[in-house]
């Protein structure tokens, strides 16, 4: 394969991965949360963990979904059962990197900041950190086999209900 061809492939993959990150963020920030589980494979894993627990080698997650069913349950619970003050997120994703792509599995990472705005108008930095993903191709779509959101802070203000 020529150098040009390799570069083209890399560029194409990078654009696809970037589009996936953008679509994911827009889906959450637009409050189209029912579409969120669809970013994952059927058995996909979603975790929010803290940097502290990860560095201590502790297994606890803030949210742990093993499979799309649990993600759907999270969203149903949020819509029908859980009580919280209405708020929206604005994700700012940066430094997206394809780490490697082998045997149909693509590993990526990014940095993120999430601003949270309450209906009162108060905007605050709710979370920042890093994400680590494993993607696979299903049909013509890239889907998340795993997304691990690593919060830099151990502290969560008030509560966490909308996925990151």
């Amino acid at each position: 394969m020529s150098i040009e061809q390799t570069l083209n492939d890399q560029l194409a993959l990078h654009l696809r991965v970037n589009d996936l990150y953008a679509d994911y963020a827009h889906t959450l920030d637009d409050d189209r949360l029912e579409e969120w589980p669809g970013f994952f494979t059927e058995n996909g894993i979603y975790r929010i963990v803290t940097r502290e627990n990860r560095e201590l080698g502790l297994p606890l997650s803030v949210i742990y979904c093993d499979g799309r069913g649990m993600m759907i349950d999270r969203i149903t619970a949020m819509r029908t059962a859980n009580v919280y003050e209405p708020h929206v997120y604005c994700h700012a994703t940066s430094d997206v990197r394809v780490l490697d792509a082998n045997n149909g599995e693509i590993r990526t990472r990014s940095n993120f900041t999430v601003l949270r705005t309450m209906t009162s108008g108060e905007t605050s930095i709710f979370a920042c950190g890093r994400t680590f993903e494993t993607l696979i191709e299903e049909g013509s779509k890239l889907r998340l086999r795993e997304r691990i959101v690593v919060l830099d802070s151990r502290r969560i203000d008030t509560l966490l209900v909308i996925p990151l």
Partner: peptide
């Protein structure tokens, strides 16, 4: 057992499905 504990912990904590409300009612 560890996996079960990790699953059940979805119910509690700052994002707990049966506990998150306690994070906001006090503020109200």
């Amino acid at each position: 057992m560890q996996e079960l504990r990790m699953q059940v912990n979805n119910l509690v904590g700052p994002a707990g499905l049966i506990s998150m409300e306690d994070g906001c009612v006090g503020g109200w």
